[in-house]
Design a protein around this nucleic acid. Structure first.
Length: 252
DNA sequence: ATGGCCGCCCTAGGCGGA
């Protein structure tokens, strides 16, 4: 089963890239973030035409998540149970016996800000919920835009970024708390090229200069075998790309 | 030194992203 995650930064704008990518990479499951699309505007027909069933939870302007699947989608859950949140950042579903959890972790804006506090609370809430979810569904994959670069090797310039949002110690501790649930970072199960990133700023020719961060991740539970994981930089080279690029893992 | 790009929205400058 091939699983992918991609922050598309507007599904409306990126739909041609997504369809092109799916045609070239017919993965089984795709988790999307930042669809920025109300449910009534979701491009359902186009994605069904491409062979995918879809579950989505969107809102105007901001956030928005979706799961695309070639196999039937069951037991769809939106949001974190017991955590009041108007922002559409979580959708989970069971596909072929695997609990697929798609997340768009808050950005946090600036260390110490209200949004940063919200990010840490949100991460604590989802970690507590995932602990329960793992007990119910040992075969679980957590995919998405985590807005956390877990280690310095996931940052193009660790000195410049030190202490910044996305790399601060409390955020990295929150990521480690997910690993402590038994989840494994699929990307780091395999040898990877140095300076592998999943996001590059639109400014400063950051992609061309490979000034990036690895903030999009696929975490998998111990019950899942993982045979490969890679970042696909190809879509970042297209005209009008998303600032994030897909991450793909193969599990069984 | 600063900001430099995108996408969004009550179409235009401000917000949020990372």
């Amino acid at each position: 089963m091939k699983l992918a995650t991609w922050n598309v930064n507007s599904l409306k704008v990126r739909l041609p890239h997504l369809l092109e990518w799916l045609a070239a990479n017919p993965v089984d499951v795709v988790c999307l973030q930042e669809t920025k699309s109300e449910d009534k505007n979701f491009p359902l027909a186009e994605l069904q035409q491409a062979g995918y069933q879809v579950a989505f939870s969107g809102q105007k302007t901001y956030n928005g998540v979706a799961i695309l699947s070639r196999q039937p989608i069951g037991d769809v859950q939106c949001g974190i149970p017991g955590f009041e949140d108007e922002q559409k950042r979580v959708i989970a579903a069971t596909i072929d016996g695997v609990r697929v959890v798609c997340v768009y972790v808050p950005n946090g804006q600036e260390v110490g800000s209200d949004k940063y506090q919200y990010k840490l609370k949100w991460l604590a809430a989802i970690t507590a919920w995932l602990k329960e979810e793992l007990a119910k569904h040992p075969r679980l994959a957590l995919l998405g835009d985590y807005n956390i670069a877990p280690e310095d090797r996931d940052v193009h310039d660790p000195v410049a970024w030190q202490g910044n949002v996305l790399v601060s110690a409390p955020e990295r501790d929150a990521f480690k708390a997910l690993l402590q649930l038994g989840l494994r970072d699929a990307f780091r199960l395999f040898e990877q090229a140095e300076k592998s990133y999943s996001w590059w700023d639109y400014r400063m020719m950051a992609f061309r200069r490979n000034m990036g961060l690895r903030i999009d991740h696929i975490l998998i539970s111990p019950a899942l075998q993982c045979s490969a994981c890679h970042i696909d930089k190809a879509p970042r080279k297209l005209e009008r790309p998303s600032d994030h690029t897909p991450v793909v893992a193969e599990v069984a």
